[in-house]
């Protein structure tokens, strides 16, 4: 499998689910979910190369900058929405999260963890952290709303969002039991299955 997220999230997705992937990239996650789970999926993407890849994979794709808002999808309904590595790039991630949960029963979100010990160490040494989950330099990053695992979980509870399940990843972005011991310190990234209360 090409997309590491497929293994991580496939247990959360029921067969034949209707899936929308915000920021779907080259469509590999949707393609693999279609093979594994017979899902029907739509991708939303802004990058022309990603869009072309989706068309080549026969993944329906919509050219759109998610930052312009997702209100147009408000009358659509999905079983699962996926937002991998993009929620921290949005202008109002808390609002976006609410809107996503209005159009889908469940939402899978990944959050790069600024509380990860490597990030903390970098900051302690006076540098902005650069990790596999946060690969860009401070001036090149699209991330404008970074948070820690604790911050994110606080937001969910404040917004009446249930965390149905979560998986914590190590530096290699693999599922890690070690990272799960103290995720806010040991995980580089959290993957969440969310639903409305």
């Amino acid at each position: 499998m090409n997309n590491p997220l497929t293994n991580i999230v496939q247990d959360w997705i029921q067969s034949s689910s209707n899936v929308i992937d915000f920021g779907c990239g080259d469509g590999s996650l949707l393609e693999e979910l279609r093979e594994q789970k017979q899902t029907i999926g739509y991708g939303i993407e802004i990058d022309p190369n990603g869009i072309l890849s989706c068309l080549r994979k026969n993944i329906p794709v919509i050219e759109k900058n998610i930052d312009d808002g997702i209100d147009e999808f408000s009358e659509c309904s999905f079983d699962v929405a996926i937002m991998a590595s993009s929620i921290q790039c949005l202008k109002e991630p808390n609002v976006a999260l609410g809107k996503i949960l209005n159009l889908s029963n469940k939402c899978i979100v990944t959050i790069p963890n600024l509380g990860y010990w490597r990030c903390r160490l970098a900051l302690l040494l006076g540098r902005m952290p650069v990790t596999p989950s946060l690969p860009s330099s401070w001036y090149g990053t699209e991330n404008i709303h970074l948070c820690t695992i604790k911050d994110f979980e606080d937001l969910c509870s404040k917004e009446n969002i249930i965390i149905e399940d979560s998986i914590h990843l190590n530096k290699e972005r693999n599922k890690s039991k070690f990272a799960a011991i103290a995720p806010n310190l040991l995980s580089s990234e959290g993957v969440y299955l969310l639903a409305r209360k």
Binding site: I40, P60, I62, K64, F73, C76
Partner: peptide
């Protein structure tokens, strides 16, 4: 495209 998506039709938009 949006109407097609609401009806569950495989549809792409460029």
């Amino acid at each position: 495209q949006l109407a097609a998506m609401q009806s569950g039709i495989s549809s792409s938009y460029l």
